[in-house]
Computed example of a mutant assay.
Amino acid sequence: MKVNWKKWMEDYGLFLLAVLVLISGWEWVVRRGSIPPFILPAPSAIWQSLLDNRDLLLQQHLPATLKEVVIGFALSVIGGVLLGAGMHFFRVLEKILYPFIVISQTVPLIAISPIFIMWFGYSIWSKIAVTILTAFFPVVVSTYDGLRSGGEEYRELLLTMGANRWDIFKQLQIPMAMPAFLSGLKMSVVYCVVGATIGEWLGASEGLGYFSRRMSGNMQADAVFAAVFLLSLLGIVLFLFIAVLEKLLLKKNFQ
């Protein structure tokens, strides 16, 4: 896929300039002693911490978090699509499940995470459970709302041509639902990073969330920020991956 660098700079040039100014100002403020480095380390100190801990971060903790995110995201997508499509097809199922799905998002993760630890122990599945609880809601809602948004005029046209409910679902409702569904995926994949981090903070032996908690206890602020930087970068990369997938799928569907 060819990149139009001129358009890219028009879209993101000001953002990059703002980031450069922010990092420069941050470095200057910390170096002149206005903020103690144990509260807010300088960007250069964070970068040095990344270099010093790169083997530990990149070979042990980042892969552990990525594994939790990928498994949690995959299960969230599968469960969310099945629930969203099921509620679309069966009105009774919608009346039963939709309130429970909304209620699940009102439960504080900090409060329910210890329950998952009691159920699954300190294994990867306690972190995946937190990740799923965080990430499946956007998939369910975007799938359900997307399927309901199919154009009524097109539906009536297909009915007059003898189409059955499956034909309408496949030929009309799925393509019409794709923009909403893919938007839900972009939110969900970012929430997966948040959920995995929370799960690691509350009970884990590896992962970026665990690393940042351990470094926080040791008052190593630069290492904490290094882990936060990698978590943010992971979320951005996954978001961009879904965004590229969205562009390719929508281009294919609406050609």
Rank of each mutant, 00 (worst) to 15 (best):
residue 1 M to G: 03
residue 3 V to T: 13
residue 6 K to Q: 14
residue 6 K to N: 15
residue 10 E to V: 13
residue 12 Y to F: 15
residue 12 Y to H: 08
residue 12 Y to A: 07
residue 13 G to H: 01
residue 13 G to I: 00
residue 15 F to D: 10
residue 16 L to N: 05
residue 18 A to T: 11
residue 23 I to P: 10
residue 31 R to W: 07
residue 32 R to Q: 11
residue 33 G to E: 06
residue 36 P to N: 07
residue 37 P to S: 12
residue 39 I to C: 00
residue 39 I to Y: 11
residue 42 A to M: 03
residue 43 P to Y: 04
residue 43 P to H: 08
residue 45 A to M: 14
residue 47 W to D: 08
residue 47 W to K: 04
residue 50 L to W: 09
residue 52 D to V: 12
residue 53 N to K: 13
residue 56 L to T: 12
residue 57 L to I: 03
residue 58 L to S: 01
residue 58 L to M: 01
residue 72 G to N: 02
residue 73 F to M: 10
residue 74 A to L: 11
residue 76 S to C: 01
residue 76 S to M: 01
residue 77 V to W: 05
residue 78 I to D: 06
residue 79 G to P: 08
residue 80 G to C: 05
residue 82 L to R: 14
residue 82 L to I: 15
residue 82 L to F: 13
residue 87 M to L: 00
residue 89 F to M: 09
residue 90 F to E: 04
residue 91 R to Q: 15
residue 97 L to R: 02
residue 102 V to I: 14
residue 102 V to T: 13
residue 103 I to R: 02
residue 104 S to V: 00
residue 104 S to Y: 00
residue 107 V to E: 04
residue 107 V to C: 03
residue 108 P to S: 06
residue 111 A to Y: 01
residue 113 S to L: 11
residue 116 F to R: 04
residue 118 M to P: 06
residue 119 W to H: 04
residue 120 F to I: 02
residue 121 G to H: 08
residue 124 I to F: 13
residue 125 W to L: 07
residue 125 W to M: 09
residue 125 W to N: 11
residue 127 K to D: 04
residue 128 I to H: 06
residue 128 I to A: 09
residue 129 A to F: 07
residue 132 I to L: 01
residue 133 L to H: 04
residue 136 F to L: 02
residue 137 F to D: 00
residue 139 V to N: 13
residue 142 S to T: 14
residue 144 Y to I: 02
residue 145 D to Q: 14
residue 148 R to Q: 13
residue 149 S to I: 08
residue 149 S to C: 09
residue 155 R to W: 11
residue 155 R to E: 14
residue 158 L to S: 06
residue 158 L to V: 07
residue 158 L to T: 10
residue 158 L to G: 03
residue 158 L to R: 08
residue 162 G to C: 02
residue 162 G to Y: 09
residue 165 R to A: 12
residue 165 R to P: 04
residue 165 R to N: 10
residue 168 I to S: 03
residue 169 F to M: 10
residue 170 K to C: 10
residue 171 Q to V: 08
residue 172 L to M: 07
residue 172 L to R: 01
residue 178 M to A: 09
residue 179 P to R: 01
residue 181 F to R: 04
residue 181 F to H: 07
residue 181 F to T: 05
residue 183 S to K: 07
residue 183 S to V: 13
residue 183 S to R: 12
residue 184 G to C: 13
residue 185 L to V: 08
residue 185 L to N: 05
residue 187 M to I: 13
residue 190 V to R: 01
residue 191 Y to M: 15
residue 194 V to C: 07
residue 196 A to I: 13
residue 196 A to D: 10
residue 197 T to N: 14
residue 198 I to H: 00
residue 198 I to C: 01
residue 199 G to M: 01
residue 204 A to H: 03
residue 204 A to F: 03
residue 206 E to R: 14
residue 206 E to F: 14
residue 210 Y to F: 10
residue 210 Y to H: 10
residue 211 F to T: 04
residue 211 F to W: 10
residue 212 S to L: 08
residue 213 R to Q: 15
residue 217 G to S: 10
residue 218 N to D: 07
residue 220 Q to R: 15
residue 222 D to Y: 04
residue 222 D to Q: 15
residue 222 D to H: 12
residue 226 A to D: 00
residue 228 V to F: 14
residue 230 L to R: 06
residue 235 G to P: 07
residue 236 I to C: 11
residue 238 L to V: 05
residue 239 F to K: 07
residue 240 L to S: 05
residue 240 L to R: 09
residue 241 F to E: 11
residue 241 F to R: 09
residue 242 I to F: 05
residue 244 V to C: 06
residue 247 K to L: 09
residue 247 K to F: 15
residue 248 L to Q: 12
residue 250 L to F: 04
residue 252 K to I: 00
residue 254 F to C: 00
